[in-house]
């Protein structure tokens, strides 16, 4: 296996930028939801932005991602313009999917992101399809499937873990284990709560990492990507993480205590990374401030532009049920 090097300064800066963008994106959306500016639901990924922030730097443009359902960070780090993602969440015409898909069903196939779904566990087979395509066309690319702990109790998890291993497909399963499935705690979801360990049963490597520690998370993901890319097949990475908000915005959160939330918030990897970038002399405080200001600017423009976009027209709501010959 090729050596995974320590994370260089540029990469650290890029991860920080992705992370900061994703964090502010989550905060702004949460505020918008509270003000009643978003129809339907919002499932915040706040507290869980690190994995998505890494994916943007660790994958290539050839790779496919079936995103973990909370991970706005995956979209943003992959270069999706924030205004297009916000507009989609607001159900506006200028959204990624023309405003019909919304939060749970956003995709940007041009950036290799597809397979998002409102059906937990439906992403596994779709990711299998993406990995099979890479194999079939003998590309350099791989596929990545993000999901939560709860999704591993679907039958589709078993079927896809088995088939990915059996066919040695270039697929990396990334479980963001945030200790809850809606209101149900992990210990009530499954008897064996060490999710990474399940990989053994399928004949693939499985590793569990602290998702609030950048270096171990980055290394584990890179190792899995290198492995898939070099034809050694799939692996499972379990990232232990935590969502700071409820299952959905407005969730009364009767099922967990505030102390648990606080203990994770205290370990927030975002300021740690910022400090590290300064300490290692990669960027000084002035430059960091500047880059954060740029992101704020980008986001406020994105919100304004998304809000200015109209809702889909009636005609547009009726198209795309069937494809026409030559429509792609």
């Amino acid at each position: 296996m090729s050596e995974i090097h320590a994370i260089d300064g540029n990469t650290l800066t890029e991860i920080y930028r992705n992370f900061y963008l994703a964090r502010r994106f989550e905060e702004i959306l949460s505020d918008m939801f509270r003000r009643g500016e978003i129809d339907g639901w919002l499932h915040s990924g706040i507290g869980q932005e690190l994995v998505g922030s890494i994916l943007g730097v660790a994958l290539t443009s050839q790779d496919y991602i079936v995103p973990y359902h909370r991970s706005k960070a995956t979209f943003l780090s992959r270069g999706v313009p924030p205004h297009a993602l916000i507009a989609e969440i607001l159900g506006r015409q200028s959204g990624l999917c023309g405003g019909v898909g919304g939060e749970a069903h956003a995709a940007d196939v041009s950036r290799g992101i597809f397979g998002s779904t409102g059906v937990i566990g439906a992403g596994f087979p779709l990711a299998l399809g993406a990995a099979f395509k890479q194999f079939y066309q003998a590309t350099e690319g791989i596929a990545v499937c993000g999901f939560g702990d709860g999704a591993t109790t679907r039958g589709s998890f078993h079927e896809c873990m088995n088939l990915a291993a059996l066919w040695n497909l270039p697929l990396v399963f990334i479980c963001e284990n945030n200790l809850y499935s809606e209101m149900t705690p992990l210990r009530k979801e499954m008897k064996e709560t060490r999710i990474a360990k399940k990989a053994d049963a399928y004949g693939m490597p499985g590793v569990a990492v602290d998702g609030y520690d950048l270096d171990t998370t980055y290394r584990a993901l890179q190792e899995a990507f290198v492995r898939a890319r070099s034809g050694q097949g799939p692996s499972l990475v379990e990232v232990k993480t935590y969502r700071w908000h409820g299952h959905y915005e407005g969730d009364p959160e009767e099922y967990r205590d505030k102390g648990e939330v606080d203990s994770w918030q205290k370990r927030d990897p975002l300021p740690v990374l910022r400090q590290r970038i300064q300490d290692e002399g990669i960027l000084d405080a002035f430059n960091l401030d500047q880059s954060e200001k740029d992101i704020e600017e980008l986001l406020s423009q994105a919100v304004a532009s998304a809000k200015a976009s109209p809702f889909p027209t009636r005609e547009n709501l009726l198209i795309n049920v069937y494809a026409q010959e030559g429509s792609m």
Binding site: D39, L90, G99, V100, G102, F311, P312, L317, L318
Partner: peptide
């Protein structure tokens, strides 16, 4: 309803 999937948000009201 219209013969489409149900879109998200207030577009639902039209479908």
């Amino acid at each position: 309803s219209q013969f489409t999937p149900v879109p998200v948000g207030r577009s639902e009201d039209y479908i």
